[in-house]
Amino acid sequence: MKISIYDTNDEMSKAAAELVAKQLAEKPASVICFPSGDSPTGMLNYIVQWANDGKIDLSQSFFIGLDEWVGMDENDQGSCKYYLKHTFFDKLNTKLINITLFDAKAEDLDAECERMNNFISSKGGLDIMIVGIGMNGHLGLNEPGTPFDLYAHRSELDPVTVQVGQKYFTKETALTEGITLGLKHLAEAGIAVLIATGAKKADIIHESLQGLVTPEVPASILQTLSNAFVLLDKDAASELEHGA
């Protein structure tokens, strides 16, 4: 695990986008997993800008969605699909054709997990997997207590996730279950990237990166990964012990 700390959110976002650009330069047909939420917006803005300016080529790449609220799709304003569509896909001048996202309205969600697992496996695994971190240490919707050795799976949402998740919706929304890629995907990715900004994430960043490695803090798995890059702004890193 390599930790890099930046003065601002913008600098961190640009550095994350540069990791993606480097991966694309080395392998144009890369398999890339993007998250939704507040953290990746700056990174995605850079990627859109560079793609539209012709500085990077996304046309051969395969884009995988990290997770989704069960029962929602791109028509639900707080959904992960909605976010990726409006923040990333729709802003590109060229339409992407290799997009694979969870169908969180599928009748058989376990089969949907298997579909995602099989697709990723068929492409040789994820080349780069980018995640944010929840206030409870979750990555994707791998909630506290999730075993490190799971691939895609259904997830009963932690109360913290349900509470924080309301910020993505314009009205109170019932959130009970998610569907998500697993921590095993992160461990097996060519590059695993965690991005985090803001002082509100400082406690959980410290606990995840310098506390006990335990499924009760899913992000603590990063301590065990030689393929992991952790990109933080100085506020998110403010409680890390000296020398981190």
Rank of each mutant, 00 (worst) to 15 (best):
K2I: 04
I5F: 06
N9R: 13
D10G: 11
K14A: 15
A16T: 04
E18S: 09
E18Y: 10
L19V: 14
L19F: 14
V20H: 01
K22N: 03
Q23R: 06
L24Q: 09
A29P: 06
A29K: 05
G37N: 00
S39W: 00
S39A: 09
G42T: 07
L44Y: 05
L44C: 04
L44G: 07
W50A: 10
D57E: 08
S59R: 02
S61P: 09
F62E: 10
F63S: 04
V70A: 02
M72L: 10
N75M: 11
S79Q: 00
Y83T: 15
L84D: 08
K85I: 09
F89L: 06
K91R: 04
K91M: 08
L92T: 10
L92H: 05
N93F: 10
L96Q: 06
I97V: 15
I97S: 14
N98E: 09
F102T: 05
A104R: 00
A106W: 04
A111D: 08
A111K: 06
E112T: 14
C113R: 02
F119Y: 06
S122L: 05
G124M: 03
M129I: 07
G134Y: 09
G137V: 03
L141K: 12
D149N: 07
D149V: 12
D149G: 10
A152D: 06
L157A: 05
D158E: 00
P159W: 04
V160G: 00
T161Q: 02
V162P: 07
V164G: 14
Q166S: 01
K167A: 15
K171A: 08
E172F: 15
L175F: 08
L183M: 01
A187Y: 03
G190M: 04
I195F: 12
A196M: 03
G198K: 01
E207W: 12
G211D: 01
E216W: 12
A219S: 05
L222R: 01
L225M: 07
L225E: 07
S226A: 06
S226F: 14
L231I: 15
L231K: 12
L232E: 09
D235E: 12
A237W: 00
S238M: 07
L240E: 08
